[in-house]
Design a protein around this nucleic acid. Sequence first.
DNA 1: GTCTATAGGTGGATAGAC
DNA 2: GTCTATCCACCTATAGAC
Lengths: 214, 214
Amino acid sequence: MNQSGTHDRLLNAAEQLFAEHGIGATSLRAITSGASANLASVHYHFGSKEALIEAVFARRLEPLNRERCRLLDAEEAAAGGEPSIESIVNAFVAPAMRLAYKPAGGGEHFMLLIGRLYSEPGDLAIRITEQFGEVFQRFTSALSRGLPHLSRTDLLWRFLFMVGSFSMPLMGRHFIPRRTGGLCDPSDVENNIRRLVAFLAAGLRAAAPNGVKT
Amino acid sequence: MNQSGTHDRLLNAAEQLFAEHGIGATSLRAITSGASANLASVHYHFGSKEALIEAVFARRLEPLNRERCRLLDAEEAAAGGEPSIESIVNAFVAPAMRLAYKPAGGGEHFMLLIGRLYSEPGDLAIRITEQFGEVFQRFTSALSRGLPHLSRTDLLWRFLFMVGSFSMPLMGRHFIPRRTGGLCDPSDVENNIRRLVAFLAAGLRAAAPNGVKT
DNA sequence: GTCTATAGGTGGATAGAC
DNA sequence: GTCTATCCACCTATAGAC
């Protein structure tokens, strides 16, 4: 039926174990054991641990960023090229939040993993973040049309603040309920998207900071 | 002259190497070599690699969080118990930004390291974040007095968004200039503090999100 | 495509001399 | 407090039978 369900089982096991224990701390033995595969199968299917890591990221990032651009396209078409700030923020945030928590999506572990990306040795983070180039460009352009009172520098900073802010509900699955006495539930996805959009749209729209020369 | 400059040299070398290559990827041999110390000295001074890691974090986090509380105290005293949202955000954000980029502070590497905390195996992140308990409590209380239109849940989420957003200028030292064509300079600390405060204060003050039941 | 076996290297930790 | 020498567990990668 499949010449290699092993290939996908390895990706799944790697994704989960990387998210739980960190990339560097996950051995190929743990991965192949979790995938009910042989130790040597990683090298057969991917060539090396490095290549397996890249495959794990590419499998999720490509559809995620395509979906972001698709939503932005739709909003721009619907609004005649001038979508609201809320729509733009939503197009950026919602696909990631849904991927992280939608049970069927298979990305439950992946979003934890994204935050761990920067922790790993070598140039892995740089190679992976190349994948965000188009998204970065498209969304900063869309935002700048809706926020003409901001200099390019202020706009870019606010975009970066946005990226940081919503890493929190993505990465804090275990940490946030603990710290908030259960009040904040990261899996309450659609409400959290609304919370984020309200917060971020207001922050993005704020007057340019006083005393900052650009 | 010193019974053990070795102790501090080990902390310094570990901090730098952890930040550059990740905690798990840094061997004791690399640390002792960087500190011009002997391999066994780590076990003599700290007992284990785990204990060394905790000491690296405690050395920076304790003064940082003390300074945050001190600034908040000062603002509350000056404002008769009702400081502005901007003042509260500033008291939270500014000490970390200054620690990360002030050359004399010795924390150049540390703030990169904080972001890597969640990547590491085991319960390290949980043990370290216990150190934030008092700060979390104090700042959410101060914010809630200034933002009575928010439910406790919405307030806590916005606090978490804030924490995430300013991890960006802290961790993105290398990444941000690259991605913004040099327009955004993470080391432009005082201006970035003003940018963050303007952005976050507006986001915190936004109306409660529609359609979110609390 | 899957397996066993093993090579070749590095990790944290420790004993014991000085 | 500092050093050398060493133990032993574990890692990635590969060779070669099936």
